[in-house]
Design a protein around this nucleic acid. Structure first.
Lengths: 192, 192
DNA sequence: CCACAACTTGCGCGCCACGCACATAGTGCG
DNA sequence: CGCACTATGTGCGTGGCGCGCAAGTTGTGG
């Protein structure tokens, strides 16, 4: 049989990831202070592409740096959508979330970078908000037609994940991220 | 007694507002499509200052355009903080919010501009998030020391306001914004 | 009245996003 | 297999932007 995906798209995803990981790595090296020193040509060079190509994938350094977070949020939304439809909302949300963060802790340095660097704040919020669309869809499937309620809940869940992340990187105690996340989610799913 | 505020800061606030108002007005004229055509020099000229001065107040066009929304969020947070401490949380939130949006409807065109223009998405989210800090503080005052809960609730409330705004600008039925907002808030304050 | 501080402005530099045109490589069809 | 076709990488040029720097200007306080 032919490849699951053709070579074009495989290469495309590969370069995209190469660029974003290079961008994040460089940002971490320079630190939040010296983020302005992460030049586009550095990212491109580190990813092995031309600066012009970098710009075909991302239209700003911030976007490239936060791409991983954004993709993760997108996958989280998908995961919730693929849960059995008869599962109660709170359970489904917790399960879908734990599926990601339960097994492996997120990258602490990376998360701290994108959440504590003012220049990245906008992109970081965009990334976390990415999950709201699918989330709202999945919630609407379970609770019926109240669109407003679904969106409010989706925003609350996404906000809870974001706040949990912030707490996790601020406190240095060893409470695992999944634990904080569960507590945060419990506060919002109580309304469901 | 001396002036409540000295001339320096009065002028400063005046120019800041002149710039942001001019920026929003121009953005509305050009429309979401032609936002790229709103050049810095246009904003500066419309505000009666030099381009360099514009840049002393805002470090991007997006920031200038969304400044009003951002300021409003800041004031909302303050309003909640100044509510009587013995008022129940849900009531206080609703009251503080109604104090703003109950009397006068927000500017529909302006809100639609900053919420439906992709290039402004990041700044818009930053603006709405601005209220979370004061909100969390006010909530923590009422519910005791659970920092995580306070922040989660604050994010949920801010998210509810944002979602309500989105609903309001999407539907053209004549349900007033305050009404939608109350319904949205009811869904999250139920958890309090 | 005067020294000081805050603010504005012009200038210049480096960087960046992006349109355009061309080269190259993967793909599908006869 | 060979040949059009299309998607993608890249170089170049352009317009614009953010900001540091160094005057010039205008409140402010002693």
């Amino acid at each position: 049989m032919e490849d699951a995906v053709d070579m074009r798209t495989r290469n495309r995803q590969a370069t995209r990831e190469a660029i974003s990981t290079a961008a994040l790595r460089l940002a971490l090296e320079r630190g939040p202070e010296g983020l302005a020193l992460v030049r586009v040509r550095d990212i491109a060079e580190a990813a092995g592409v031309s600066p012009r190509t970098y710009n075909n994938y991302f239209s700003s350094r911030e976007e490239a740096i936060c791409a991983f977070q954004s993709d993760q949020a997108r996958r989280l939304g998908q995961a919730l959508l693929e849960r059995p439809a008869d599962e109660p909302l709170g359970q489904a949300v917790t399960a879908a979330v734990t599926e990601y963060y339960g097994t492996a802790e997120p990258d602490r340095a990376g998360l701290r970078m994108i959440m504590c660097t003012p220049a990245l704040e906008g992109e970081a919020l965009k990334a976390f908000t990415t999950a709201e669309g699918p989330l709202a869809e999945a919630i609407a499937e379970r609770t019926g037609g109240d669109e407003l309620f679904a969106r409010v809940m989706a925003a609350a869940v996404a906000g809870a994940i974001r706040v949990a992340g912030r707490h996790w990187i601020e406190r240095d105690d060893s409470e695992p991220f999944a634990s904080i996340l569960r507590r945060a989610l419990a506060h919002v799913t109580a309304a469901a």
